[in-house]
Amino acid sequence: MPVKKTKKYTLSVPGVTNNLATIRAFIRRIALKGGFTEDDTEEIELAVDEACTNAMKHAYRFNKEQSIDLEVALDSRKITIQISDRGLGFEADQIKPPDLKKSIMEGKPGGLGIHLMRSLMDEVRFRMNPGKKNTVTLIKYRSQYPS
């Protein structure tokens, strides 16, 4: 189905992990409706899950009183997902690709989520304003254009 102009969708959920399935279903519905392939849709779903998990775990420490806001914009070239929280934020630029061997030796896995986001999406941006608004922006361009 051709998408001629930008369509926008929003979702706001409490920042706890039992909402991850709801978030994935929301993103999946939009991506498929927007003509993304099944493979691309699965990648978008996982990247959004990782961004939301990070916000729930690190920004809010699983505080259900706080919300996570998703804004999705869909146009003919791409899908843009903005995930915002009002939690602690982090220095995204300081996070390097995970050293798996070191993580295994120390029994402390970390940084996998951001690595996955960067691998799955075409663009990943972080804008941190701790306590006010931290936003992760995920962009994926279509591998197939709608006919």
Binding site: P109, G113, L116
Partner: peptide
């Protein structure tokens, strides 16, 4: 489905 939480 698996996310990084499971991989960890």
């Amino acid at each position: 489905y698996i996310s990084s939480a499971g991989l960890g």
